[in-house]
Amino acid sequence: MARMHSRRRGSSGSDKPAADDPPEWSDVEPEAIEDRVVELAEEGHSPSEIGLKLRDEGVQGTPVPDVKLATGKKVTEILEENDADPEIPEDLRNLMAKAVRLRDHVQENPTDHQNKRALQNTESKIRRLIDYYRGDELDEEFSYSVDEARDLI
């Protein structure tokens, strides 16, 4: 499938190995993993950062290669159950941060047409994501503006 805002095709990514059970060397209790996930979320880490920290640092010194295999739930599901989920989804937050950075750059460099176009494409992606999440994870009256994005980020 081609990329969204260019005519090039992307290279395919690697697939995760097919596994039904967590490895034997990672014998951490699911409750301990869930407690650590909530603890990391309260420290301000995003769901993807939580997964990386569990993979690298682990729980009580034992790494957790895959949270879903170990607990049967995704990191975001664990956060929702414990009311620690972020107010806006992570992908939307990252796009808003990118748009804010691009907006600042374009204001300092008004002749940079390539980044003006990148800003337009990024804001287009933001609007589509807001339509996707509206009502479910975002309020019905949520709308994107640069000032609101600066406040959220």
Score class of each variant (00 low, 15 high):
K125C: 08
E42Q: 15
N121V: 05
W25L: 04
G58K: 08
E140I: 13
G13H: 08
D20A: 14
T122M: 01
Q120D: 09
V146F: 12
D147Y: 01
M1F: 10
P86Y: 10
P86W: 15
K68M: 11
P65K: 07
T111W: 05
V38T: 05
E39Y: 10
E57F: 05
V28E: 03
V59D: 06
P22Y: 05
I33C: 02
T111K: 10
G135L: 06
M96N: 11
E42T: 07
E42R: 14
S26W: 02
H5N: 12
P63V: 08
K68E: 15
Y144G: 00
D56F: 03
M1D: 09
R36G: 00
W25R: 07
G72Y: 06
S6K: 10
R93I: 01
S11D: 08
R134C: 01
D20W: 06
S124P: 00
R93A: 14
A70K: 05
V59F: 07
L69I: 13
R55E: 13
K98Y: 01
A84R: 04
Y132S: 00
L138W: 08
G61Y: 03
E24F: 12
T71Q: 10
R117C: 03
P30E: 08
E43F: 09
P23A: 11
S48W: 02
I153R: 02
A97H: 09
A19F: 04
Q120M: 12
D35H: 11
T71H: 11
A84K: 05
I126R: 03
R127W: 06
I88G: 01
E87K: 14
A99H: 02
R103W: 08
Q114T: 14
P22G: 01
A18Q: 13
V38L: 04
R134P: 04
A118F: 10
D35K: 15
V75D: 04
E137N: 08
Q60G: 11
L92S: 02
V146G: 01
K74S: 15
E140A: 10
Q114F: 05
P17M: 04
R101L: 03
A41H: 09
L129R: 15
N115T: 10
F142K: 09
N82S: 14
P23C: 04
N94Y: 08
K125A: 09
E123N: 12
R117D: 14
D83M: 05
K16V: 03
E34K: 08
E49C: 01
D15T: 12
P30Q: 03
S12V: 09
P110S: 02
R3D: 06
E34Y: 03
Y133P: 04
T122W: 00
L95V: 01
I126E: 00
